[in-house]
Write a protein that binds this DNA or RNA. Structure first.
Lengths: 135, 135
DNA sequence: GCTTGACTTAGAGTTAACTGTAAGTCGTAC
DNA sequence: GTACGACTTACAGTTAACTCTAAGTCAAGC
């Protein structure tokens, strides 16, 4: 049993709007989308699987142009398997870097939250507010 | 001993360019920057401390307009301490959500890397390439 | 006193990633 | 057979966050 989706259904499944899907199609991010006789796009499970990778790459900060390189390689066939593998490996490094940066920023945020916690208590008690630079 | 920085020095310290610092100033993200007689901006340690918070918020996805709200509150004085505290608390939730999303995307990426690892081996050995949707 | 370099402003231009509009086509329900 | 809703395209508009240009000011060194 082959399940197929209209652009509206595919967009709903991917938490996108149809404008965005058409934009991705125009930019070449969705290679093999077939059409009905009337010209309407038909999304298969395989298309949605590919789309989930596209969304994963996009949500982790890869620019559209690079994602297009990936789908271009996918279209070119098996001799680009290594290139695609390398691209994902490099991107994983990038994502791990993002995790580290996020953790670092979380530390600073926690530090500032600590300061505000104390400052709010002091304020409520009518005591002098600590200076932020001493903390 | 009070250390002061020119806009170029401040930019270097913060890994930004001067254009960006002037843009932030124009948008009201850097409240109390004083000036020399000639009108040049002077950044103190306290200014850089505030700037590091601005950068932290920006790097964790807070839009400029919201950051401006934060610095506006800072300018208004101690009666906004709770508002600022609440804003940072809410933003921390946001950052934790980002961490979760990043982890989720990393899982999908690892899954795909696994597929490509196997697919590349099969390709190199002249064996049939597994289909991506079966994995 | 003139050049040089670092700064200033106002405002225009750029980029990425959408987001929306207008005009038109197609297939089904009445 | 026509109205409706879901789709199509081409293309224009939007948004956020810069990024740059042009014209000008100022202080220090020769």
């Amino acid at each position: 049993m082959i399940v197929e989706y209209s652009i509206t259904q595919a967009a709903k499944k991917m938490q996108l709007i149809t404008y965005t899907l058409r934009y991705y199609d125009r930019e070449g991010l969705l290679p093999s989308i077939s059409r009905t006789k009337a010209g309407n796009r038909v999304f298969t499970e395989a298309d949605l699987d590919m789309l989930s990778v596209v969304c994963c790459l996009k949500n982790t900060g890869m620019p559209i142009k690079e994602i297009k390189q990936f789908t271009d390689w996918q279209n070119e066939g098996d001799h680009t398997l290594h290139a695609r593998h390398n691209m994902l490996l490099k991107h994983k490094e990038d994502v791990l870097k993002q995790m580290e940066d996020l953790k670092e920023n979380l530390r600073l945020l926690d530090h500032k939250l600590d300061y505000y916690h104390n400052a709010c208590h002091a304020y409520d008690a009518g005591l002098p507010i600590p200076s932020c630079c001493e903390t």
